[in-house]
């Protein structure tokens, strides 16, 4: 008889992520622990997570072109972003909550603390959310964000990016990150992307143009896949409970 029993999440490969202390990104200097993280054997606390249901969300929650439109459509390049969320062993991550936020086409955020001169767009809020389906698939529609300047060195610019957050099956999978767009010449010099040590991993944050899925006379399309941690198979015991 073979039956897959899931145990703890495989331990996180820290080389896949930026270190807490990355002085090229200056704000991290005072916001990084000096001590090593304490590694713990996972318990029920880490393998469980809150569940959400699709009926908590509105029909426009994943449509950033329409969900804040007041007197017209937002300005900018109309794009679709879609992809799959799966775990490190290739299993689809279904019913995960994916939340996204971004600047508008001018590179301006709808936020009280953003002082950038770039124009606000009265028809663009910049936030959306959705759940992955049974195959781990997600799709949302938005306006391509603009690059913008920020305070790090004097003349620092962020490449265009969309922030994203995932809540899936286990607390250990909790992830917040940002993705970028193929062809953006600001990517290579960005101190925030450069906090990630591996080039392969930096590339994993670049959404690729998906020409086959452009919508004629309407929107271009980008493909972006996401990988979360996965649970190990346990063959002889399941000692989490």
């Amino acid at each position: 008889m073979s039956q897959l029993i899931l145990g703890a999440y495989a331990q996180r490969n820290t080389d896949d992520h930026p270190p807490a202390y990355a002085p090229g990104y200056k704000t991290s200097v005072l916001r990084s622990p000096k001590n090593a993280l304490i590694s713990i054997a996972e318990t029920l606390t880490e393998v469980t997570a809150p569940h959400f249901s699709a009926d908590q969300f509105g029909p426009k929650d994943n449509d950033l072109i329409l969900n804040y439109a007041k007197e017209g459509l937002p300005i900018g390049e109309r794009i679709i972003v879609h992809g799959y969320v799966r775990d490190q062993f290739g299993r689809p991550v279904k019913n995960a909550l994916l939340e996204v936020w971004q600047a508008n086409a001018s590179g301006r955020y709808r936020h009280p603390n953003d002082q950038f001169i770039g124009a606000m767009d009265p028809n663009f809020g910049g936030c959306g959310r959705m759940m992955t389906d049974a195959n781990g698939y997600f799709v949302f529609r938005t306006i391509k964000p603009g690059p913008y300047p920020w305070r790090n060195r004097i003349n620092e610019w962020r490449p265009a990016h969309i922030h994203f957050s995932l809540l899936a099956d286990g607390w250990a999978q909790r992830l917040i990150s940002q993705f970028y767009f193929e062809g953006d010449t600001l990517i290579d010099s960005c101190p925030i992307i450069k906090t990630i040590p591996s080039e392969q991993q930096r590339r994993a944050l670049i959404a690729l143009e998906d020409k086959s899925n452009f919508i004629e006379a309407d929107s271009r399309c980008y493909r972006f896949d996401i990988t979360l941690r996965g649970r190990r198979a346990t063959y002889f015991e399941n000692d989490l409970t």
Binding site: P18, T27, W101, D114, F164, I176, T227
Partner: peptide
């Protein structure tokens, strides 16, 4: 597969 790398939530995390 490699886990998607983390990045800072940034100062405007509230928007999303």
């Amino acid at each position: 597969l490699h886990e998607t790398p983390s990045q800072t939530g940034g100062p405007y995390v509230h928007i999303g």
